[in-house]
């Protein structure tokens, strides 16, 4: 089966004092069935806004989707009514957040929260819903699942809360799970457990996962394909092997080289100079040009397109010039 989620030319902006500021400038990508796609970027890259745009959870923020399509199983989510979208959320598309405490209701017993979700979407009655809830908790590796049903979120540790959150979000067999930094707040040993759990669930249910993270280690561990974002744009997209073995975009390469690696024995780390540009002061040409060590004249004048080549794409004049010389340029946009 083809793509599960297809995002076409998505543009999202924020209302600010100085009018609308575009923070995501027309991005395209897809997530297939049974695939874990990593959406990587630093703060300010627009990765979280992308996930909220897909879920259409921007009302609590000054954000608004300006343009584009979000095709889920052949249907444009942006054209759905809020009522229909609400039925989709938690049922077809689910989302887990970095800090589960903020997404769980602190004054409601865990069992009740899961049962509520189940009865809302699965049309199950009391006892059956309860059994399903317990089995979901067990399936995410929670010991004493029956007791936990009667506990409150604050009685659990961070790792346990994240498991509860995962159990809740997968209880209605969603086809797509969006995980926004799900392990960032957790300790490494717990992070490893949660990553294993997500991988297992994905293999069992064949759901698609969009994994939003800043941690390239997590990406390498769990993802099949990677999308790298910078300043509200996709700058590179490739399979996880290609990204790590042969990054095309200088930003991707810089990111990978910036991570300290155990046993590398380097005295100095590679570092990308400068910082992410603010939406107010975006450079004119390539948005990465001011920090790039391969910058050329054209980079400051014109922004390169996201060019496709052998199933991977990159937004860089460097690779595009090379391929133009070789005469195999294809435009992704």
């Amino acid at each position: 089966m083809g793509s599960l989620l297809q995002v076409n030319n998505l543009k999202t902006g924020f209302h600010t004092e100085d009018g609308m500021q575009t923070v995501i400038t027309g991005i395209d990508f897809e997530v297939n069935h049974g695939e874990i796609v990593g959406l990587v970027g630093e703060s300010g890259s627009g990765k979280s806004v992308t996930s909220l745009s897909i879920m259409q959870l921007l009302h609590d923020t000054p954000g608004e989707i300006i343009d584009g399509e979000i095709i889920y199983k052949g249907e444009d989510l942006l054209k759905l009514s809020e009522k229909k979208m609400r039925q989709y959320r938690g049922n077809e598309l689910s989302m887990i957040f970095q800090e589960p405490m903020t997404s769980l209701n602190p004054v409601m017993k865990i069992g009740k929260q899961i049962i509520e979700t189940i009865s809302l979407h699965l049309n199950m009655s009391g006892q059956k819903a309860k059994q399903h809830a317990v089995s979901m908790l067990e399936s995410v590796g929670i010991p004493r699942a029956k007791d936990i049903m009667n506990e409150y979120p604050h009685q659990l540790s961070g790792g346990m809360r994240q498991r509860v959150m995962i159990a809740m979000q997968i209880s209605c067999n969603p086809s797509l799970l969006i995980a926004d930094e799900p392990t960032t707040a957790l300790d490494v040993t717990i992070q490893a457990q949660i990553l294993d759990l997500l991988k297992d669930i994905q293999e069992k249910t064949n759901m698609g996962i969009l994994m939003i993270t800043h941690d390239l280690g997590v990406v390498a561990e769990i993802c099949d394909r990677v999308i790298v974002m910078y300043a509200g744009r996709i700058v590179e997209q490739a399979t996880v092997k290609e990204i790590f073995n042969n990054p095309k975009h200088p930003y991707t390469k810089g990111l990978i080289d910036s991570i300290p690696k155990i046993g590398a024995g380097l005295d100095e780390l590679y570092s990308i100079p400068g910082a992410v540009p603010s939406p107010k002061n975006m450079p004119k040409g390539c948005k990465f040009a001011p920090r790039c060590e391969h910058v050329m004249d054209i980079c400051n004048l014109e922004e390169p397109a996201l060019a496709m080549e052998n199933g991977r794409s990159s937004r860089c004049w460097l690779t595009q010039e090379q391929s133009q010389q070789e005469g195999v340029v294809g435009h992704g946009q």
Binding site: F14, T16, D18, Q21, G44, R89, F97, S278
Partner: peptide, 19 residues
């Protein structure tokens, strides 16, 4: 479901208007 999907704005990347 909606109520539980509250978003913590601090984790988000909202451009700050700095004066």
């Amino acid at each position: 479901m909606m109520s539980k999907l509250q978003i913590e704005t601090s984790t988000m990347e909202i451009p700050k208007v700095k004066s």
